[in-house]
Design a protein around this nucleic acid. Structure first.
Lengths: 158, 158
DNA sequence: ATAAAATTGATATTGCGTATCATCTACGCT
DNA sequence: AGCGTAGATGATACGCAATATCAATTTTAT
């Protein structure tokens, strides 16, 4: 995780997700869920993933585990806050491991699907200022940046 | 459309969508599409809508028009920039008429589905600063605020 | 009025996810 | 260690939003 300052913004970008290895199974167990073979398979696969992933992709990589179980387990991880869901430009859903515990946003490479976390205090501040000008209460928000990361095979090949 | 200043932010919130009546059919015609009865029915229905809407909802309100045509027409309006798509908190898609021509964001009431546009120069500035700290090029972004508008039947009834 | 091109709608199909439910398994208890 | 049961699984069916197919229809330029 690299932190740097950019014109009064404090931006945290997770540059090395390999360094962060959450124990997803332990997180589920801590929430009262049983330790089962399918869950161990799914969580240890996800721990290897640095980019965004779809449920289908996980399912394809684990033929021995039923599709329903893959969906169910990802849902549990979502509820546990270990995984987050983001929307691609066309609206399709992508999941991603949460490296940072805190609230954050994402950028996604539209070419290779790489996902990185963004944490900028300035964003939260701005959003709460906007919220002050809106009737009612702001419950949540979502911010996604769509990029061409310039590092992926798709981009560097061109 | 009401514009106001809030602590150095220039925020534009479309408070009166009734005032804006885009001629959607004319927009499609201008892009070379034919004027047909189903398209007229769809566009004039959409021109009445102030809140977000789903394709299904439109389809239900126009039983005489085939579902496929509803989807196709909304897609054309999306490409024409007359309609935008946003994601609800659970990831489901919602469409909304674009009152403002410029780039903007949205807030959505999670209770009643009301959608309003937000335009804040500060957001764009912040995003471009964040983009400067990211490898590659930022192509696009998405920002949605989820609110309890406090005005809808769902909320005021409580 | 006519013909070509665009559009339509019925239908089938896809993608992504949830519901059902009989079977199986983890794990707390003795 | 064995047992009982709540919890978990997976095959299947289903749901929902959207797209693909394609013959029939409609628009529009001529």
């Amino acid at each position: 995780m690299v932190l740097f300052e950019a014109s009064s913004l404090r931006i945290g970008i997770n540059m090395d997700p390999q360094a962060l290895r959450p124990d997803l199974m332990a997180m589920l167990e801590g929430r009262g869920y049983r330790v089962t073979a399918p869950r161990k398979a799914i969580t240890s696969l996800l721990e290897q993933k640095r980019d965004g992933f779809t449920s289908d992709e996980v399912s394809d990589e684990l033929p021995s585990v039923g599709r329903a179980t893959v969906y169910r387990t990802i849902k549990l991880l979502l509820e546990a806050g270990a995984v987050c869901r983001l929307a691609m430009m066309d609206g399709t859903q992508l999941y991603s491991l949460c490296g940072i515990g805190h609230h954050h946003h994402h950028w996604v490479c539209v070419e290779c699907g790489a996902v990185k976390e963004i944490r900028a205090v300035a964003i939260e501040k701005l959003i709460s200022e906007i919220g002050a000008g809106i009737p009612g209460e702001v419950i949540d928000h979502r911010l996604e940046l769509y990029v061409n990361c310039g590092r992926c095979p798709a981009t560097s090949g061109k």
